[in-house]
Amino acid sequence: MSGFKTLQGKAAAMDRANVDTDQIIPKQFLKRIEKTGFGKYLFYDWRYTKEGLPNPAFELNKMENQGASILIANENFGCGSSREHAPWALGDYGFKVIIAPSFADIFHQNCLKNGLLPITLPAETVEYLLERAQKPPYDLKVDLQNGIVEDEYNFSASFTINEYWKKMLINGWDEIEITLQLESSILSFEEKRFAVQ
């Protein structure tokens, strides 16, 4: 996993509440045993018509939204199933940052583990961003190190993210490697916990 500190990119708006992971990546694509290549199935049922053609009414199919790396979404984004295929698909499609007023817990966690940055901002702020992004092209700059989102119209908002996850994202660390360094703590925990009671 590669890390990142700042990102400048095109923002696309998806003004829907409670977008669930069944929508992000429908179950018919969960049978694959790889982590890659899910981007083409992202939002499949919304993105394509019954005939399998791109649905012109779907936000992300608009010409101006092609190549977007930042997704502006609405409340409770990523609710439902724990499938990590959802962030895999978003990342594979090209998104690096998702901004929303709130995220579902497991999805939020899954994003962080896959180098996808979930940014929580107040609802009014997200509303502003949604409005702007609905009139593309609209670019945003995300500074992960300092926790700042900015546009070219003097908008700036700060966000917080747990320091631990920030370090992980910036450095692209392997979490298992870090935990394995605590092997002796795990061992002594096990000795205590499973001592004959």
Binding site: Q109, E175, I176
Partner: peptide, 21 residues
């Protein structure tokens, strides 16, 4: 008891632990 993603599945398989707030 809670649900986890695949990266966490791998983490638990390897370490029997999870980082959780």
């Amino acid at each position: 008891a809670f649900g986890i993603g695949t990266s966490e599945v791998e983490h638990v398989l390897a370490t029997q632990t999870l980082w959780q707030s």
